[in-house]
Amino acid sequence: MSNDATPESGPAVPPPYEPPAAPPGYGAAAAPAAAPAYGAPAVPAPAQPPAYAPAPAYPQAPAYGQPPAYPAVPSYGYPAPPPGPKTNIMAILSLVFAFVFSILGIVFGHIALSQIKRTGEDGRGLAVAGLVIGYVVCGLSLLFVVFYVVFIVLIIGAAASSGYYYSS
């Protein structure tokens, strides 16, 4: 009970405050660091690295201008085949529009077949596929409309003969 208060001695008093040492002013040399107190050896200063050899002299770069021409590269294997006949645009459009708007796909397919017969272009298979898909989609659409109309007529007929009348 060294720092406790007792009734005879009064409250314990802390030691007086000592402010820290002021830092050195601007431009003043700092105090040298003290050696470690625990007896560790001081670190010796690092040795200077060996000097590098002088850089070799490189030749002067040529002036800007036309680069030297490269020799032709020999081609190996077979030469590229010549370009074949182009594909008929109407045949491509026939296949595309057969899914979107079947009537237009059918018209473009017939135009494409006549152009292919006259000019010899590629795309006969595309035109035939556009025609077939266009006719199938058109037929299915027509069947859907017929069944829809018959269904509506049957519903109206069933509602009319049901016997329920609303009177106002």
Rank of each mutant, 00 (worst) to 15 (best):
S2I: 07
N3Y: 13
D4A: 14
A5E: 05
A5N: 11
T6E: 03
T6S: 15
P7D: 08
S9R: 12
S9Q: 12
S9P: 01
P11D: 12
P14K: 08
P15N: 11
P16V: 01
E18D: 08
P20L: 06
P20I: 03
P20H: 03
A22E: 15
P23W: 08
P23Y: 05
P23F: 04
P23T: 01
P24L: 12
G25K: 09
G25H: 10
G25S: 10
A28G: 04
A28E: 15
A29C: 00
A33Y: 05
A33S: 08
A34K: 12
P36T: 04
P36I: 04
Y38A: 11
Y38R: 07
G39C: 10
A40Y: 09
A40D: 04
P41D: 09
A42Y: 08
A42T: 05
P44H: 02
P44S: 05
A45S: 04
A45I: 06
A47L: 09
A47T: 07
P49Q: 10
P49A: 15
A51G: 05
A51Q: 08
Y52G: 12
A53S: 10
A55F: 01
A57P: 01
Y58N: 09
P59L: 11
A63G: 11
A63D: 13
A63V: 07
Y64E: 03
Y64N: 06
G65H: 06
Q66K: 05
P67N: 11
P67M: 07
P67H: 03
P68Y: 13
P68I: 08
A69L: 13
P71S: 10
P71H: 04
P71T: 08
A72W: 12
A72R: 07
A72M: 08
G77Q: 09
P79A: 06
A80R: 06
A80T: 04
P81F: 08
P82M: 13
P85N: 08
T87L: 03
N88T: 03
I89E: 15
M90A: 11
L93I: 00
S94H: 01
L95A: 05
F97Q: 10
A98Q: 01
F99A: 04
F99I: 10
F99D: 11
V100M: 11
F101W: 06
F101H: 03
S102F: 01
I103M: 01
L104V: 07
L104D: 02
I106G: 00
I106W: 00
G109Y: 00
G109A: 14
I111S: 09
I111H: 01
I111A: 03
L113E: 00
I116G: 00
G120A: 02
E121M: 05
E121D: 13
G123K: 00
R124K: 15
A129L: 04
G130Y: 02
L131Y: 02
L131M: 14
V132C: 00
V132T: 07
V132Y: 02
Y135Q: 06
C138T: 09
C138Y: 09
G139P: 00
S141A: 11
S141E: 07
L143T: 13
L143R: 02
F144N: 13
F144M: 13
F144L: 14
V146I: 14
V146Y: 02
V149K: 14
I152F: 14
V153I: 15
L154M: 14
I156G: 13
I156D: 08
G157A: 15
A159D: 11
A159M: 15
S161N: 14
S161A: 12
S162K: 06
G163T: 03
Y164V: 11
Y164E: 11
Y164S: 05
Y166T: 12
S167H: 13
S168P: 09
